[in-house]
């Protein structure tokens, strides 16, 4: 949380990206504590590894410093605080943390946990649910990853067109 607050404050984008890596790693640890080793592993590799590199690459292509604006952003602050207060008010009515009687543990999870070895022979429930019970979902996610990759390739693959100085490149020929 402290790391996230520091990200919100810092102006230097390079520092923000580095703090983002640290933040992801803390998040991976938190997920590990919450008994989600699969998710934690992915978060550590993706958040602290891949996305940090991508952010750095984007920074290299753009620029490092954020221009400071001195006016205090009052409206976003107000919106955030109000939204946070509402969410907190709602969250305190949720079932307490770690309660085995919570509604989340009553629906399909017991069936997954009880029948998974009998039906699929795979002891890691996460893998079994991912690939088998929810195979359609995962297929969709894979296609989304494919689409994201294709979009990036389309946006960044072409030759960089030289910009002529002094003329506004956008808007003149677009409209």
């Amino acid at each position: 949380m402290a790391v996230a607050a520091a990200i919100a404050r810092t102006r230097n984008l390079f520092a923000a990206v580095a703090l983002g890596g640290i933040y992801s790693f803390c998040m991976a640890l938190a997920l590990l504590v919450l008994d989600a080793p699969d998710v934690s592993m992915t978060e550590a590799a993706v958040g602290a590894g891949v996305s940090t590199v991508l952010l750095l690459g984007a920074l290299y292509l753009t620029r490092i410093e954020e221009t400071p604006n001195h006016r205090i952003a009052l409206t976003p602050l107000l919106v955030s605080v109000v939204a946070g207060a509402t969410l907190l008010y709602g969250a305190w009515a949720l079932p307490p943390f770690g309660d085995p009687a919570g509604p989340i543990h009553q629906h399909v999870a017991p069936r997954y946990l009880n029948d998974v070895v009998k039906e699929t022979g795979v002891p890691n429930v996460v893998t079994a649910v991912l690939a088998s019970y929810r195979g359609f979902d995962t297929f969709g996610e894979t296609v989304v990853v494919l689409t994201g990759g294709l979009g990036v390739l389309l946006l960044l693959r072409g030759r960089r067109r030289p910009l002529s100085k002094g003329t506004a490149p956008i808007g003149k020929d677009a409209t």
Partner: peptide, 14 residues
């Protein structure tokens, strides 16, 4: 992930 945790439980690997 938070609500999915049960105190005293372990990772979902049978």
């Amino acid at each position: 992930v938070g609500p999915g945790k049960i105190i005293g439980g372990t990772a979902p690997i049978i």
